[in-house]
Write a protein that binds this DNA or RNA. Structure first.
Lengths: 191, 191, 191, 191
DNA sequence: GCTTAAGCGAGACGGTACGTCTGGTCTTTGG
DNA sequence: CCAAAGACCAGACGTACCGTCTCGCTTAAGC
């Protein structure tokens, strides 16, 4: 038997204001200097309204991530038919973003390390928007290491992992590095 | 003209007590709940003694890392002559440690994301102790993707990156996953 | 022309439940830890229902007081014909109550200090139930300081004031103190 | 054996700033709207410095009271030789202060009701500065109710109690009321 | 061996942010 | 239109740490 729920429902304007404020402050100050008080003030909201629905900044950041408020949308994998070239272009873009928004990217990794929700959100965000392994499947046969039966899921993981590691080491990377990485992991183009 | 330095020199017992306390607390509560006050109390030391020599918890953790106080020493890459098998054994061990000490590993990643020193230390610790790319060089020709001219540095990066990503996603991994990852990145063993 | 009053009228069960809850919580936690939220929860009532009719906890407590829900009814001045003995008995009882329910009594004073309504209610409650000055009028001539023309209103005020001061100073008082107070203020019995 | 106390010592400027701020805010907003945060902000002090030494606003207000920062110094009982006239003048002054600073006086009563320290402080402050019972001792024989053996302590208590009650009831009082109260409690002047 | 200055433990200080609690208002659902 | 339920903005609570700053003590180097 259902309890008779009454009273006001969750305020959508408040929810949106909070997520907006979170994304803005995340970009400004990074994950570890993000404070609930700051978010509440920026959003024009009581702290309790945040604690009521999210409980801490981890899930809050995760929700921002999943709604695409943190990572710029330009990170989608292009599709020109030439998978190898698309991947190179995408990697180059990722490297550029990493350099331009180093703090944001590192903050995201820190957030992922501290909160499972953010980790999962980050993974969904990356693989969802870019769908790398799907594209690799379509490219089987075009490079030395992409033969029938290739474990494209693992290859995608290795590629993204290499990117994350690059971010952690703060070494700047450019188009040449993108090419080298693809050569190493996918092998040279065939034919 | 040099000023005449006088007075006592840095206290080694204090230094060691601080690093011990840091390592112990890091394992207990993780990176983000690590506090300078807690370390000072545990080490029986004044806070100023920590700030005098390290300045913040980042470099402190980095120094613990470089002295091998955080990661168990068992993470060295074995050397039986069969590089592929050695890698598989090492990866399996790494996966096991990641599962057993998830918080420690994730805290380390978080620390690396927040402090360059820790990132560098982590990188040195991993590649230094395991020296993966050197071993891959020695194994050229033994797997499909390890042909002469192979970019072993990038391959090592991809492998470790995949491991870090696995840690961030909290998905448990075992020996089978280790094999699949190696198959994907290094290719099947030849002959 | 009168507007036709329609819709439900004020709920008596709600009113009673609120006053009951207020009296109970007042006795349990005292005036300054009394909260509207706590009262509403205990009474099974919405907060708005309290704010609609009382506005704050001051008038609420005053109403409880005037309905006799706070002070035990035993504080009435006995009437044996011997005014001096009656007063002594009453004072002794008051002192005993003050000791047994110190928090309640002090909370009442605090409430009176913060809200005029409570102050007035307290005054009415004390002088109304005990009607001291009336009895003193009837006793004129029986003690040294109760001569014709005595200002019995002021004397009553002085007596009750002394009692309040005793409560504020937390000094325990007993029958002997009651006698001394009466001796001092009313003078020794004549004849 | 005394512990070897070392380290910095309590900061007197901070202590004074806190008491100043408390007294000022007490006069401005009254006891129940007094907040630790407000005091800390006004004093330019961290909240912890207040909690370290006082623990709550009760003892803080008590200390202000005992240092004479709350009640104006003009409440001292004059001494012209004519005790009856001195008392009347003093009472009139007290009534005037009560009217002019009603909130402060009532706040003080509320504070006394909530914190024993304040109650004790208030009592010391009143009897200390005015020393009523001592003066009454000296006036024995000059009024009808001040005969040898009079319980001057109780009489003083009754007088001050009447004053407190007047404050609680918010009834304005003037010189005439002062005279009537003295007539009632002390009796008419003899000879 | 006396002087001098730095290292050390301890911990108070001005602050920031925490997560909780309550105040008083507003909004929804139902009788 | 009233009542219950409870979300909302606001802001104080008392706690935990931050990084800085004395304290008084105990060392070493250098005269």
């Amino acid at each position: 038997m259902a309890l008779p729920r009454t009273g006001p429902v969750r305020s959508e304007p408040a929810r949106v204001a909070i997520l907006d404020a979170t994304a803005a402050l995340f970009a400004e100050v990074g994950y570890d200097h993000l404070t609930i008080e700051g978010i509440a003030a920026r959003a024009g909201v009581g702290k309790q309204t945040i604690y009521r629905w999210w409980g801490s900044k981890g899930p809050l950041v995760a929700e921002c991530l999943l709604e695409g408020r943190l990572l710029p949308g330009r990170l989608t994998l292009p599709d020109t038919g030439d998978v190898r070239a698309d991947m190179a272009a995408w990697l180059t873009t990722v490297f550029r973003v990493m350099e331009a928004e180093q703090r944001l990217v590192l903050s995201l990794i820190a957030a992922a390390a501290e909160h499972p929700e953010v980790g999962a959100g980050l993974r969904d965000s990356l693989t969802g928007s870019a769908s790398i392994s799907g594209r690799l499947d379509a490219a089987i046969g075009t490079t030395a290491n992409l033969q029938p039966g290739a474990l494209t899921g693992e290859l995608a993981e290795a590629l993204i992992g290499a990117v994350v590691l690059r971010a952690l080491s703060r070494e700047p990377a450019g188009p040449v590095d993108a090419e080298r990485l693809l050569d190493a992991v996918l092998g040279a183009p065939t034919g």
